[in-house]
Simulated scan of single mutants.
Amino acid sequence: MIIVKIGGNILDSPERLQAFLADFAQLPGPKLLVHGGGKIASAFGQRLGIEPKMVEGRRITDAETLELVTMVYGGLVNKQVVARLQALYCNAIGLTGADANIIPAHKRPVRTIDYGFAGDVAGPDSINVAALETIIEAGLTPVFAPLTHDTQGSMLNTNADTIASVLATALAPKYKVQLVYCFEKKGVLQDSENDASVIPHINASKYKTLKAEGVVHAGMVPKLDNAFAAMQQGVAQVLICEAEALTSINTGHYSGTTLSMN
């Protein structure tokens, strides 16, 4: 089972997205795609007079913004991706966490910042694996928007990296799961200004060192935190790479950064 998360910068480029989806459609065996779409939501919101509210890179999801991201993530972006995959003979089905109660979550509690209708997933045990397996075993490829629900009738805006990680850990007892984070960089970089400085392999102890030294920082920290948490809970392998490197999975000669516990 290959679970791929695709970042927003790829979604912003029709050409890169099309090339990525063509590669994704060719991956053998069962697969699952999780997408973001934050920049598209911000741009669409500005057309509607809804200015994005961000704190430390995270979106504040008030009631108006929740309507926006539900429309953009669950509608516009999700269905465009599904339609493109259908054109590539990949029988995809677009989903949110509310569909078939696959990803229930809870509204993030207010501590120092009120993130509004932001959703936190309790963990892999909360995932409706039976429903997800029914979809996969029917030969369909799930495409998840970064939305969950609170089981009380409200949608919740949820980090796509987290959704990919939790789905991977939930499916790990049934499948040998490979989790792939695709984005605009070639992998985890030693020098964020040098695209050629890819670190080919990072284990748990090296990650602690890189984080302490500030080599890994900002948005890469939650991505890697999620990745190592997934491996601690049974995910076989995590790969972080640029979208164009997805086909390297078929060859076994990975382009990007592979992560392992040891």
Rank of each mutant, 00 (worst) to 15 (best):
M1S: 08
I3P: 06
V4D: 11
N9D: 14
L11N: 06
P14D: 07
P14C: 01
E15M: 05
E15L: 13
D23S: 15
F24Y: 11
A25K: 03
L27I: 08
G29H: 12
G29Y: 12
K31L: 01
K31E: 00
L33G: 00
L33V: 01
H35V: 01
G36Q: 05
G37F: 11
G38H: 03
S42E: 13
F44E: 07
G45C: 07
L48G: 00
G49C: 09
E51V: 12
M54E: 08
M54L: 15
E56H: 13
E64H: 13
E64K: 15
L66D: 08
V69H: 10
T70I: 04
M71D: 06
V72I: 15
G75T: 07
L76G: 01
N78F: 02
N78P: 01
K79W: 10
K79M: 10
V82L: 05
A83D: 09
A83G: 14
R84T: 05
L85I: 07
Q86Y: 14
I93S: 10
I93Q: 08
G94E: 08
L95A: 03
L95Q: 04
T96H: 09
N101K: 14
I102W: 03
A105Q: 04
H106M: 12
T112K: 15
I113S: 02
G116H: 08
F117N: 06
A118S: 13
A122S: 14
P124L: 02
D125R: 14
I127P: 00
V129F: 06
T134V: 09
T134M: 14
L140Q: 10
T141H: 07
V143Q: 04
F144E: 02
F144G: 03
P146S: 04
T148W: 00
T148D: 00
D150F: 04
L156Y: 03
L156G: 07
L156P: 01
A160K: 06
D161Y: 05
T162P: 06
V166M: 06
A168D: 01
A168E: 00
P173G: 09
P173C: 02
K176G: 10
V177K: 07
Q178Y: 13
L179G: 12
C182V: 11
K186P: 14
G187W: 06
L189W: 10
L189M: 04
Q190A: 15
D191H: 14
E193L: 12
E193F: 12
A196V: 02
S197F: 12
I199E: 05
K206G: 04
T209S: 12
A212Y: 04
E213P: 00
V216L: 04
H217I: 00
G219I: 05
M220T: 02
L224K: 10
D225I: 08
N226P: 05
F228W: 03
A229G: 07
M231L: 08
Q233L: 12
L239G: 03
L239P: 02
E244L: 11
L246K: 11
T247V: 10
S248H: 03
I249S: 11
I249D: 06
I249A: 07
T257F: 08
S260D: 10
N262V: 13
